[in-house]
Design a protein around this nucleic acid. Sequence first.
DNA 1: AAGTGGTCTAGACCACGAC
DNA 2: TCGTGGTCTAGACCACTTA
Lengths: 268, 268
Amino acid sequence: MGKTLSDRCESRMSVGSLPIWMTMISPTASARLDARPLYQQVETVLIDRIASGAWPPGHSIPSEPDLAAELGVSQGTVRKALTELERRNLIERRQGRGTTVLRHTGDTARFHFFRLRDLDGTAVVSRIVVLSCTPGEADAAEAAGLKLPEGTPIYRLRRLRTVDGVASIFERCTLVAERLPGFHLPQGELSTELYVHLQRAHGVTIEHAEEDLSAQAAGPEESQVLGLPPGKPLLMVQRVAFDIARRVVEHRISLIDTERYRYAVRLD
Amino acid sequence: MGKTLSDRCESRMSVGSLPIWMTMISPTASARLDARPLYQQVETVLIDRIASGAWPPGHSIPSEPDLAAELGVSQGTVRKALTELERRNLIERRQGRGTTVLRHTGDTARFHFFRLRDLDGTAVVSRIVVLSCTPGEADAAEAAGLKLPEGTPIYRLRRLRTVDGVASIFERCTLVAERLPGFHLPQGELSTELYVHLQRAHGVTIEHAEEDLSAQAAGPEESQVLGLPPGKPLLMVQRVAFDIARRVVEHRISLIDTERYRYAVRLD
DNA sequence: AAGTGGTCTAGACCACGAC
DNA sequence: TCGTGGTCTAGACCACTTA
């Protein structure tokens, strides 16, 4: 085959109106270059619609037959693309109801990005207190963590997580300002999950994150905040979080007292 | 449909010989009870053939059209089942060459189950020294880790991993004897990956593992083995490993000096 | 040239949910 | 009742490997 979505669309332009996605792709440039399978091209189109905000979180997207007709491909091809989006936790499909763009709730955000578990394996609930939130420019260490140049505008966020009333996690977050125009934290809701807020207030959906774990002795700042003796072994988690377009949004260093809780991982 | 694989087979029994999988399923019991989708039933059949050793690691399995004909389903249904097996890292498909049962190599075992990375993200190579290997019965702690009753026959394995000549990881492994009849370690190859050996010598394929991470101060045994000051923060990884049939095979406690290396995780 | 898995299509029927 | 996604089929053509 080797045909491109735009080829198929051009042959239909006389009948229908210009599809949204064509406004984002240069027709001349994409004419021959995109030799990827059709279902991957469909995938890209759908992701662009979600990432651009055309289909915001919670939006019901067109049915599979409608999408197939609009894009000039078969329903099977659309299904294959949607299956991949579902695997990436970008959409939710339900028989009889239709397909919607996933909206981060506290539960889903925690399920995917909060790996702390009780000793018997049950999920842990934590309360969050924001200690400080200030704009600034990335220093050497922060720039290295974000893999962005030094001096990049950022926001610095310090948080404390409390489990069962016990201060257990100290978090230093570094947020990329460019991704979050007009960033501010709601004063009242200190316990809001950060990623839920980023999606609701800035339209930024965190899709995946990479974490590096190590053991670290408690330094002066964290031993004071967590109320622990200096030198006590803590679990240090360094996270880099990416949005749907796989751009860096956040770097976070969490220091965790694992006396009563464990960080759970599944390996396949 | 709601039809069962055995229904479809019965209608073909007059022409072909009895398929392998029918010998493992009671025809009467499975006649009405298995209301799962066909592709999942096919999946089960194929997994059984792999788990039973009928298709050992490295074996080239029949082509998709052949499997479809044998099982009385369409090629698309077989493809869907194979796609899931591929996702679970049980098989490898290559265009033009065919499909083979995955054989653990040192590389694949490390890639899936060894999460340690250099500070710049490159994979770490380690040499293994076996300190001891003795049979015994599970004590309370070991039984809890394996989620098996106390007194279950086990093998205890102590290993030391060296990275760049520096002792970095001390491992206490507990292996379920029932899964590994006649278990012994090859004397010469101290650096063999355990999971490669389990597959080659005992036909046991480790498919996935669950790990709990915490920070722990070095105790007397590990500080001596690793040559570290007592009380130094170490990363403690408690792993439970499962075979293809999702039965527990191993419990392992690793104590890691994360001075120069990191445990890497990807969250989706 | 023959056979493999990979892509794509068209259409049937089913299970579920909303109206 | 209707429209949705889920399952299953049959068959075409392509890309790749092997002989």
